[in-house]
Design a protein around this nucleic acid. Sequence first.
DNA 1: AAAATAGTGTCTATGAGACACTATAGT
DNA 2: ACTATAGTGTCTCATAGACACTATTTT
Lengths: 242, 242
Amino acid sequence: MTADPEAAYLAEYDPSRYERPSVAVDVVLLTLHEGGLRVVLHRRPALPAAGQLALPGGFLHLDETLLATARRVLAEKAGLTEELWLEQLATFDAPDRDRRTRVLSVAHLALVNWARIRPALASAEHAVVAARLRGVDDAGRALLTDEHGAPLALAFDHAEIVGTAVTRVRGKLDYAPVEFQLLGEEFTLRALQEVHETILGTRLNKDSFRRRMLDSGRLAATGRREEGVGHRPAELFRRRGV
Amino acid sequence: MTADPEAAYLAEYDPSRYERPSVAVDVVLLTLHEGGLRVVLHRRPALPAAGQLALPGGFLHLDETLLATARRVLAEKAGLTEELWLEQLATFDAPDRDRRTRVLSVAHLALVNWARIRPALASAEHAVVAARLRGVDDAGRALLTDEHGAPLALAFDHAEIVGTAVTRVRGKLDYAPVEFQLLGEEFTLRALQEVHETILGTRLNKDSFRRRMLDSGRLAATGRREEGVGHRPAELFRRRGV
DNA sequence: AAAATAGTGTCTATGAGACACTATAGT
DNA sequence: ACTATAGTGTCTCATAGACACTATTTT
């Protein structure tokens, strides 16, 4: 036995005396496909909200970090076992956001090159779709459509979570090199510009974009060029310094 | 009875079947005093970590939003009942960050003018201090000292939380008008510049700072001037719009 | 050769830093 | 009158947009 009051207190501490919320992790996985931003969703196979589209998500286990939960739900709900770039986004806490009980969601943001996840998405066992992201409305909710432009509704407050993710990515673009997560190893300056334009939803000036990127020191020229493009081929670049 | 499977599922849902973490809210309240950035701390009166300095914090109640919890802990732990500017910062989840049990902390950031909280801090019943913020180390932890420059240690992972808060405020400065929370209703351009310099920890160019601020449209001239300053008095401005 | 995009060079507009100069308070 | 800071005007430099022009590939 010890006379340390801190140790004695810890030994007697009973967390069940206090009310605790459930804590979930939802992942907004963004990618680029056919010139547009996409978000990976799955159709919920079970209650609650069965049959509705939702973000891959699941409850935190007590021996897991939030990032580990995020990686686990991507594997379980979307079949994605790739090592993806992931960061915490925000915690959503509206008391009525889940009808079961009080559930906080610590939303995470992930970015990935389409080619890296296409095989996993194609295997239909998880009923996963990559919905088109059409923008963010005045209330901060994402506007999503299917392949034909028909609006898609999301379960829970997931449209709000996706909206927050899009806003975050746009803001990060000019101080963090997030765009490289969406590209392959090698890319042309035009492809890099198209990534920026797609994320921002605006057109950028070609000349100053070239200068900014080349002057930034974040690009390393490979000396090789793209092939088979019907016009003068552009030089291929890699991200410099990981 | 209803045949709706969703309603039946919800009626039978038992959250206690799943393990849940405790969820706390910690508030990083920053202010400016004597030319330096300060963070409001209190000395913990009870176990765990009794006697150590910590952020005002407390457990989320299930009928509360996170912001409501943040306001409540500021009142309970620091005696601050003022209506403060508050926003969510990030959720801290290291499994060993609290020795009692798994505790997630949804940290919040608050900014306030020193004059608004000085009276509450002066009433010593909450053992509250405004520690000097000396910067952020390479690991992202805040460096704090007392009035005499002696380093202060914080309980739990609170130095990391404060470090994250400082980094966030610095980043917000050039796209959100956070600096006005730290000033009184009326202020001179010099005072505004000193707020920016204190937050950023750097010196700014006077001429271009003036131009930037006046051109930004965020300032409204009052036509009045400061008084009793021993030199030409500067014009007083207010924040425009809101 | 035509079409299409890559890539270079240069002019211009804008914003930041530097600095000189004038203005106005207290002492 | 002196000191200290407010505030204005202007020059220079760096960066972004605009545009003309050359280069290199496929068809």
